[in-house]
């Protein structure tokens, strides 16, 4: 049946892709998640850095979904924002993607395990027999919370992991459907203010402080066919990074982030912003790969150095 589907699909693709793809040669379709981490990209767009490189960035936001790489494969995106675990899994399964550029090194300070106050959850050991929420099973958050549990004296095998979307974690905690959650910045701030909740730990700090959880990536095929465009993209992104680094703590950055995340500016002002990492760090990626192997997420070995795009 998928052959039939494929036939129709191909027909549809031909109908659609010819006019929408070839029209503007200097357009890059980039898949993003509206998270504060992407501020350098948005800065580059807002201040015309991409335009000066002759690039038109067509943003395709998705909310927390892990469809960046599938979308690359399906040909919807030229470049996708995705995380290191997805990238490694893809490569291990024979999908040839390359990491182009990393993001602010803020993950360690922004992502936290939260729990109900007064229940004595302080370390991984306290989580035995409890339920912990992660946004996506067998992905980056899951991987690192398991390692954090191990490092702080617990055993992940004794913990139940449940997939809960980030926005639903706080309510699930309060309704006692889960006992702890590994949560991202906005909601960590919300939890910090909630009298019923507390911040337990920042697992990345304890597991791998320099971790680079997210990157821009593209397929090798695309990169090879568009070397020039990719180079210009990275050049403009670099200027975006510089702007970002220069504006940490300043009003321009807060209003930029509030604008593209659609968050209230008061919330954005409480976020922490860290400088941008200069390049994709192979050593850090190897640490992630080794963790994945230990958890059985990688069946084939992956040569990390070959995954990183070299200009």
């Amino acid at each position: 049946m998928f052959v039939v589907a494929r036939g129709i699909v191909c027909a549809l693709l031909i109908v659609c892709s010819v006019p929408c793809r070839a029209a503007e040669p200097a357009t890059l379709r980039v898949s993003v998640i509206p998270t504060s981490v992407l501020a350098p990209l948005y800065a580059g767009i807002k201040y015309g850095y991409f335009k000066e490189e002759g690039l038109n960035i067509d943003l395709a936001p998705t909310a927390g979904g892990a469809i960046g790489i599938p979308g690359l494969v399906g040909g919807s995106y030229d470049i996708a924002f995705s995380n290191n675990v997805s990238a490694l899994s893809a490569v291990a399964q024979g999908i040839d993607v390359q990491l182009l550029a990393p993001f602010p090194e803020g993950a360690a300070d922004e992502t936290a395990v939260i729990a109900r106050k007064g229940e004595g959850i302080k370390t991984g050991r306290d989580l035995a027999g409890k339920t912990v929420a992660v946004n996506t099973n067998r992905n980056v958050i899951w991987l690192y919370v398991r390692e954090w549990i191990r490092k702080t004296g617990g055993d992940p095998a004794q913990v139940t992991f449940r997939e809960v979307a980030f926005p639903q974690m706080i309510d699930a905690l309060k309704q006692k459907q889960i006992d702890a959650a590994f949560q991202i910045n906005v909601f960590v701030i919300a939890a910090g203010k909630d009298p019923a909740l507390e911040i337990v730990s920042f697992p990345y700090r304890e597991v791998q402080p320099k971790v680079q959880p997210s990157q821009f990536l593209a397929t090798r095929k695309f990169i090879e066919g568009n070397k020039d465009k990719v180079a210009r993209f990275l050049k403009a992104l670099k200027r975006g990074n510089e702007w970002f680094d220069a504006h940490i703590g300043k009003d321009e950055l807060f209003s930029l982030v509030a604008e593209f995340t659609k968050l209230p500016e008061a919330v954005v002002r409480e976020m922490k912003f860290q400088p941008v990492a200069k390049k994709v760090d192979a050593d850090e990626l190897e640490k992630t790969r080794d963790l994945m192997k230990r958890e059985g997420l990688l069946k084939a070995d992956v040569d990390v150095k070959k995954m990183i795009y070299a200009e």
């Binding site: 892990a66 899994s89 893809a90 399964q93 996506t136 099973n137 067998r138 997420l297």
Partner: peptide, 13 residues
């Protein structure tokens, strides 16, 4: 439903 999505995300097609 969960299996299908989970396996797609892990690229175990």
């Amino acid at each position: 439903g969960f299996r299908i999505l989970d396996l797609q995300r892990a690229f175990q097609i």
